[in-house]
Every structure is written in C-alpha cells, then in structure tokens.
Simulated scan of single mutants.
Amino acid sequence: MHGENLQEWIKHIGYLGIWAIIFAESGLMIGFFLPGDSLLFTAGFLASQNFLNIFVLIFGAFACAVFGDNVGYATGHRFGRRLFQKEDSRIFKRKYLIQTQNFYAKHGQKTIVLARFMPIVRTFAPIVAGTAAMRYKTFMTYNLIGGAVWTVGVTLLGFFLGKVIPDVDKYLLPIIAVIILVSIAPSIWHVVAEHRSAKNSPPDEPQETYEPQEK
C-alpha cells in the first residue's frame, strides 16, 4: 500500500479502525498480516497535520495493543496444545506458532517486548506465552512495557518527523519501507541463524519438540 493510499485509508477508518487493527494484530491469529508498524507511523504523521489527536491516538493504540495481547495469552492458555496440533488452513499456519515458540525459548520473557517490533511474531508471542503457562503477572509486566514502547515510540516518530521535516509526506513511502525492513530484520536474522545451526548440527541429533513449561 502506497504512502498516500495508506493516509487516505487511515482518514477513512479513523480512530476505531486504527485501534481495531492494532488489537487484531496483537492477539488474534488472523491479524498477523496487518500493517501495524506502518499504520502507527502514518497515523502519527497525520496527527502532526492535525487530522488526528496524538494523545487520543496513542492512548487508544496502547490500550488495544495491551488488550489484544491479553486475548492472545488467554487463547494460548486455554487452547494452546490444540493449536499446536491443528492442521494448516488458509488463515492459520502452524509454522508461525512453532517459529514464535522457538524464538520464545531462546529469548525468554523479553520476547513479549521484542515481538512488538516483529511482524507475525508479535501476533503469536502472547499465544505461546499463554500456552507455556507463563505467569500472568510477569506476562502483563512485559506486555505493558512492550505495548508502550511500540505504540508510543512508532507513533511519536511519525508525529515528530511530520513536525520537523517540511513536506515529509513526500518521503512517507521510503520511510515506511525502512520501518518495515527494520521490523522484519530480526525475523530474517533468526531464520538464518536457525538454518545455520541446523546445518551444522549432527545428523543424528534429535529434533526439539514443544513442551509447555511453567514460567
């Protein structure tokens, strides 16, 4: 979606549309494909042009991001084992859960914060946390931190660039492209690292399987 098209789209859907997308991408499995980073950045830019109120925008985005993660956690806590056994469909891909679980196993609790900046992973991280029986108090702490850093940071970046750079809207497309690239870079690095590790592992080494553990 081009920068100008994204701006018009955001103007059309308004606050409720923005918040609904942030909620869906944070905790609903069908939301993994949604453009959270570019959406927040562009919405922040539009706030700098007085199309939106920055405080209302950030508060709603933060609340929906935190609430969305809570829904994902509850889903994983209640249906986690079934999800890992579920067959692939057009919407649900079990590999996304497995990839997120491997990332979670490597990076632990801070995954809840790191995942906010990683498309796909941010959708499934709270589900994996719930499946792994991560203590809710611990999860909520990281959820609040990650939700604040992501929604406030990315939105304010768009807001302040819109204020200090003349005609920044002309550069929205490359800026959004950079944001997307930075967002997916950790995922690419993780996949490459896993591939190298698997390639260098002994052929008879057993594959690790998912086992939920108390956190």
Rank of each mutant, 00 (worst) to 15 (best):
R116H: 04
G3M: 06
R78F: 06
T100P: 02
L144W: 08
I180H: 04
Q49M: 11
Q109G: 08
A133G: 07
I22L: 09
I179W: 02
C64I: 09
Y171I: 11
L39M: 13
I179R: 06
N200H: 14
M29L: 15
N70E: 04
G60K: 08
H77L: 13
P212E: 08
G17H: 11
F159R: 07
Q85V: 00
R135V: 04
G60C: 11
F41Q: 03
F67D: 00
G153P: 05
P206Q: 10
I184P: 01
A24E: 04
L83F: 05
A105H: 11
T42W: 09
G153K: 09
L52Y: 10
F62H: 03
G14E: 10
W189I: 15
L83E: 02
T151P: 03
M134D: 01
T155C: 10
L114I: 11
T138I: 12
I176C: 07
M134Q: 04
K11G: 12
M140C: 08
A105K: 13
F124C: 01
A132K: 04
G72E: 00
A177G: 13
G153A: 13
L161P: 01
D88R: 07
N102E: 12
P203Q: 03
G31R: 09
L34T: 08
I22E: 01
T209P: 03
F51E: 09
F139D: 01
R135S: 12
F51L: 12
R196P: 00
